[in-house]
Simulated scan of single mutants.
Amino acid sequence: MGVPVTKLLLSVHVLASIVAIGPITVAASMFPRFVKPRTGDDDPAGEERTPAGPAMLHRICRGYTVVGLAVPVFGFATGARMGVLGDAWLIASVILTATAAALLLTAILPAQERLLARPAGVVAEEAARSAAARLAMVTGIFNLLWAVVVVLMIVRPGSTTGA
């Protein structure tokens, strides 16, 4: 007795979402805190910050972005098998996913790269604080988009799951 194809596709889609999107949201959220210059107010004892930390978080974001391509691929395959590609909840999810991907590719990753390559100096530190704050805001929007997509995938208007 084999697993029906739709259930297999849905399982891979959900697993890819967890394995790929989860690390991006966490690493992207942590990046601004660890890249901005310290001030006396945000310098907790025992917290070590090195340039290697933000660089690693950026590599996680960049690397899992490639793995994350599996999410829409298996999502479209699952939607096609289920016959829901024209449903409003799925179209909204696709639009939100595309928006999140665009934010990641055009705003988050480039901003991380700019912050990693920033020059030293007092003026550069103020600019870095400002850039890190903007990046934190964009990353928050990115994470919110994914949260809405997850809710849409679970609640699915018209679903027969009773949710």
Results as ranks from 00 to 15, higher is better:
Ala147Cys: 11
Arg59Asp: 12
Thr65Ala: 15
Leu115Arg: 05
Glu126Thr: 10
Ser17Thr: 04
Val67Lys: 03
Pro44Asn: 07
Leu8Lys: 06
Ala77Tyr: 14
Thr6Met: 13
Leu8Asp: 09
Pro54Gln: 11
Val19Ile: 09
Ala111Val: 04
Val149His: 00
Ile24Val: 15
Phe76Cys: 01
Ala100Gly: 01
Leu105Ser: 08
Ala132Leu: 09
Leu103Asp: 13
Leu145Asn: 01
Pro54Asn: 09
Ile95Gly: 03
Arg156Asn: 12
Ala128Ile: 15
Gly86Glu: 06
Asn143Cys: 09
Ala124Met: 13
Leu144Asp: 00
Val5Asp: 15
Val12Leu: 15
Ala80Trp: 05
Pro157Val: 11
Arg38Pro: 01
Arg33Phe: 08
Phe76Val: 08
Phe31Pro: 04
Leu104His: 04
Val84Met: 06
Ala45Asp: 14
Thr65Lys: 15
Ser11Val: 02
Ala20Asp: 08
Trp146Val: 00
Asn143Lys: 02
Gly83Cys: 07
Trp146Ile: 00
Gly63Ile: 01
Ala102Lys: 03
Ser93Lys: 03
Asn143Ala: 09
Arg49Gly: 09
Gly40Tyr: 05
Ser11Gln: 05
Leu57Pro: 12
Thr50Ala: 07
Arg38Trp: 04
Phe34Gln: 10
Val94Phe: 09
Ala107Lys: 06
Leu69Tyr: 13
Leu152Ile: 04
Ala20Ile: 06
Val67Asp: 04
Gly83Ser: 05
Asp87Gly: 06
Glu48Cys: 15
Thr97Lys: 00
Val5Leu: 14
Ala131Asn: 05
Arg114Cys: 03
Tyr64Gly: 02
Leu103Pro: 03
Ala101Val: 12
Glu125Leu: 09
Ile95Met: 04
Leu69Phe: 13
Pro110Ser: 02
Lys7His: 13
Val35Glu: 02
Ala28Tyr: 04
Thr97Leu: 03
Leu57Gly: 11
Ser159Met: 11
Ala163Gly: 08
Pro54Cys: 10
Gly2Asn: 14
Leu9Tyr: 10
Gly40Gln: 12
Gly121Val: 02
Ala20Phe: 07
Leu145Pro: 00
Pro37Ile: 11
Ile18Glu: 00
Asp43Thr: 06
Val149Pro: 00
Phe31Met: 06
Val150Cys: 13
Val26Ala: 10
Ile60Gln: 08
Pro72Tyr: 03
Ala124Gln: 14
Thr50Ile: 11
Glu47Gln: 14
Phe142Tyr: 10
Gly22Arg: 12
Ala120Met: 15
Thr65Met: 14
Ala132Lys: 03
Thr97Glu: 02
Cys61Gln: 04
Thr6Val: 15
Phe74His: 11
